[in-house]
Amino acid sequence: MSLRLDAVDVLSKWNAPDDRADRLRGAYLEHLAAHEDGMLKACRDGHVTASAVIVDADRARVLLTLHAKIRMWLQTGGHCEPVDRTLADAALREAREESGIAGLSLLAGGAPVGLDRHHTPCAVHLDVQYVALAPPGATELISEESLDLRWFAFDALPADTDDAVRALVARARETV
């Protein structure tokens, strides 16, 4: 199965938690139906991305990255790559690359916990969001995409983040 077909399958089966998420799910499926390259950065009309907020082994904090280009605290994530077989694989790869943490695993049965559509310098991102669990003793390592990495308690997020990240962290807290 191709990455695009996996995304269609995942989104088709996903139980959206609310009407907004269900509308986004429908828009993502329409996008993928209209664009063969809708998973790839090359698609200028927008592309599906995958992200994961990382929860520590004690299930008390989340790891956020101070994104070098956007200069806001965000979850790990980004563009799908040809090596990714599934959306979940893409989310885990991005989380490993941006956090330096090996041994991450997805929570919520490996299913997405949310969707977020946002504009970026390259195009519109149709983000599929996951929650990843860090193994005990995990140590983060800042990548070249980040200015900083930091653990935050669920209820003590930094001021320079946005509502989408806050909503994702709230869903992560419900998941753990």
Rank of each mutant, 00 (worst) to 15 (best):
R85L: 06
K41V: 01
A111L: 14
A27Q: 14
A60S: 14
G38W: 09
Q75R: 11
V8D: 05
T86W: 03
W73C: 09
A42F: 00
L32S: 03
A50F: 12
A60H: 03
R117W: 12
M72Y: 06
V128E: 03
L107C: 09
L63S: 08
H125I: 02
W14T: 05
H79R: 14
R23Q: 12
G46L: 12
G110Y: 13
S143E: 11
V55K: 04
A50R: 10
L107W: 13
G103K: 10
E97C: 04
A21H: 11
I142R: 15
L29D: 02
F154L: 06
F152I: 04
L157Q: 08
D18G: 10
Y28C: 13
A52Q: 12
A68I: 09
I101F: 04
M72K: 14
W151C: 07
A60L: 05
A134W: 00
P121D: 08
R166T: 09
H119M: 08
V165K: 08
A60M: 05
R96N: 01
G110T: 13
W73P: 08
F152K: 00
R59Y: 11
A16E: 13
L74M: 13
L133N: 07
F154H: 07
N15C: 02
E97I: 03
D148F: 00
D162K: 11
I142P: 05
R71H: 09
A68E: 13
R71G: 01
K13V: 01
L133T: 07
K13R: 15
V176K: 12
W73L: 04
P17D: 10
A42M: 01
A21S: 15
G100L: 07
L24F: 12
D155P: 12
R44I: 02
I54S: 02
V165T: 14
A102F: 01
L74P: 04
P121C: 00
G46H: 07
G103D: 01
D45H: 12
C80H: 09
A21P: 02
